[in-house]
Computed example of a mutant assay.
Amino acid sequence: MTIAVHPVDAALDLAASITPRLTELADPIDRGETPPQEAYDLIRESGLLAAMIPIENGGLGLDFADYTRLLAELAAANGAIALGFNMHNVAIGSLFEADVDALGSTGVAFRDWVIDQVVVGRTMFASAASEPATGARLRGISTVYRRDGDGYVLDGHKSFVSLSGVADHYVVTARPHDDDSDVEVSHFVVSAGDPGVSFSTEWAGTALRGTSTAQMFLADTRIHADRLFLGVEGMSLFKAVRDPHWMAAGYLGAYLGLSEAIVDFAAQRLGADERRRSQAADVQRLGAMTVALQATRALTTAAARGVVDRRSDQATNATVYAAKHHLGETAQSLAAQAVALVGSAAMAADQPLQRLLREVQFCSIMPAKPADCLDYVGKSTLGANMFDVSNHGW
């Protein structure tokens, strides 16, 4: 008798085959001693780039909840690489949540092209949405496109583009050059080698060097019409309002994994100290950290499962924003508590906690920011229609 393997179990097995090496690479990449390319090559070779692609199309067939669990496993080993991997899925994940029958011939052709690129070509996608003046907000972006014969020409400047120089294709947001509206936003796929595409040197942040983040410039960049995302113009903002989970919280699994790594480190250090592990105060502090981790894991899991069961539902979206806020606050709190519990040894340069402490700070910086999360949850609680674009500040 053949026993069916659940998609997430197959994906976790693939992850387990590379996480030991990802763990080894985490600190050298963070210190700038090793380029992150080796880690992303492991992701490519493992087959994990096809995590969200349906099984019938040669992928692993994960849904958003399964994906969140996979991302947590990767992040516990290497948070920066997990966050970079997430940007690949942010760029294409929504394609495989859509009803294929409703896509139309152009949309299906675009979807099939992406599947072929990932499954056969093992190419990596990335998202290029943030801009210097507007951040990750889709409203008010300055990158523009114009129609030109059988294609489009794009001009603009993107900031904080993860996987710069690593990904093969970038999903770029742009508005019509002759339209002052801030809601008509479209997505286009621009390839790394397209004319007029260039990148700055990598951003010199205090952490997450493995995300290979840089600025992206588009100068008179011409692409064919079939690189318009799903073949539809002007729907990107409305899609993000109805289904915000990728844009606002796709990386929840990554910060959950980082949080788990922090608590695991604290538990290992306390467990190895015969004297301190018998002290009630220290054991209780570890217990409080574990309770906080369990609470944020439960909320994150509920949000991810809600996306699968009740996508495009306002209550689900409110839970997504709530989970993003709670996890951001909890991750930073756990890091501070771990330092206090473990002591000065926690900040040793050859120990991972000093890196984890720096990495979790970025959860509240990434969209949606804490105030935006609370704004959404508060308005939703008061009964506002959160499918109305005007109710969103970002």
Rank of each mutant, 00 (worst) to 15 (best):
E260A: 12
Y255N: 10
T221C: 10
T2F: 06
T211V: 08
V197S: 10
R31P: 00
D155M: 07
A272Y: 00
L138T: 14
L357R: 14
L341S: 12
G250I: 06
Q337C: 08
L42I: 09
W394M: 05
I223Y: 04
D148K: 14
A267M: 04
A72C: 13
V190R: 15
A261V: 07
R269T: 03
T68C: 10
V153D: 08
G165I: 03
D194M: 02
A133Y: 01
G253C: 08
L95E: 05
D194W: 06
D66K: 05
P132L: 02
T301Q: 12
V185A: 11
R305Y: 01
T123R: 15
M386Q: 04
R242L: 03
S312P: 00
T211A: 08
G343C: 06
V161R: 09
P195K: 09
A15C: 06
K369H: 13
K369Q: 12
Q314G: 03
A288N: 11
A75R: 11
I43L: 11
G135C: 00
A16E: 12
L252K: 14
L154R: 14
L353V: 09
A302T: 11
A345E: 09
L49K: 07
H325I: 00
S312N: 12
V5A: 06
V232P: 00
G253S: 14
D182K: 07
A288V: 09
M1V: 11
K324D: 08
D30V: 04
R276T: 04
G121H: 03
Q332P: 04
L42D: 04
C363F: 00
A292S: 15
P132H: 09
L60Q: 08
R69C: 05
I223K: 11
F217G: 15
